[in-house]
Design a protein around this nucleic acid. Structure first.
Lengths: 183, 183
DNA sequence: TGTACATCAGTGAACGCGCGTTCACTGATGTAC
DNA sequence: TGTACATCAGTGAACGCGCGTTCACTGATGTAC
């Protein structure tokens, strides 16, 4: 049952959005094509009318997830500067969210072993995040370097905080990282 | 063909060591029992004479990998203090090592979704690393908090550095993190 | 504007594969006498 | 110390399952006249 061009484009976007959610909640390996298509409400066979293979979808989903992170970080930067962005990222609600905002903390070590397309998408998102975290140009030439450190610390702290079951230790990690990154 | 108690204990250790290597090179999901047993030189059926299930082996392997990290970090702390430990961790050779020293950077996001035993092992390793990175007690009461930040930044920076294919950007991430953590 | 045909989004069964786990079996090790 | 038997480490086939991918088919959409 052929669909209109508009519907086809919408379906493609829905697949990418579903994959973006599943990656952030369960990582890349657990994001199966059958699950993605089921979320969209389609059967898995139709997947290949939209994508060459799983890798292509994952790469686009990483990009889409990145846009979500950028929007959130950008909004917080606008509201309360870098401290606000840091506090939001390292909050308990972000740690416990079943569908976290940041794909890097949710699937970073998998992306490190992913294919070219996925790593390219990750690099693209990372560069944009550095720019956003560096703030406006009045921040000086050190701003980019600082932004790199801020993102690395946030991703590492969130990953460690999610790795431990003990909530006291987990909170301690988030709190020390927040303190450290405040300026 | 029953083996002697000594041989049985050695086999078990070899399985854990093989799993530790495979986790650090390919993560948890890609570490299949058949691969682990093949590395040891056995067939996969015998696995269950040593472990209840995959989870138990993974948890022990995380602990074993942690001991490796602790030894390396401890040795570098002794030789050149925290700066030396940071430089070694964030070196290009650690980034490019097919069997990296640190399981947290290699499989952190997978550990965050792992079972109780694995997360317990991760927490145990983490506490020991905090103590080692805090140095001797002359460092003051801030030492533990600093150690937490140092580990989070190292794990995050290494994960980000491995995620990008562009080696200029990857080196930039490692260098900014090293600079930042030096004291 | 209406008709005839080509296109193609989506279906659902099928493929080969690797996974974790189970099991009957083998024969050397460990133990009881 | 020697013998008889129980134990159990390791084998290799088998299991059910979910994976990514392919394919013949359906029928609405898009296009050419």
């Amino acid at each position: 049952l052929r669909k209109s061009k508009l519907e086809t484009a919408q379906t493609r976007e829905m697949i990418v959005a579903a994959a973006s959610d599943l990656i952030r909640s369960g990582g890349i390996a657990e994001t199966s094509l059958a699950n993605v298509m089921a979320v969209v409400g389609l059967t898995h066979g139709g997947f290949y009318k939209h994508f060459r293979d799983k890798e292509q979808m994952i790469a686009e989903a990483v990009l889409a997830a990145g846009e979500k992170t950028l929007t959130t970080v950008g909004r917080n930067m606008g509201k309360g500067g870098r401290n606000a962005a840091v506090d939001s990222y390292l909050s308990k609600s972000h740690r416990d969210n079943p569908v976290p905002v940041c794909a890097f903390a949710a699937a970073g070590s998998e992306m490190a072993r992913a294919g070219k397309e996925t790593k390219g998408a990750a690099a693209e998102v990372m560069e944009k995040l550095f720019t956003t975290l560096a703030g406006d140009s009045s921040e000086g030439p050190e701003a980019r370097g600082e932004a790199i450190v801020v993102l690395a610390t946030m991703v590492g702290a969130m990953t460690l905080a999610r790795m431990v079951a003990d909530s006291k230790l987990s909170s301690e990690i988030l709190d020390r990282a927040k303190e450290h990154l405040h300026r």
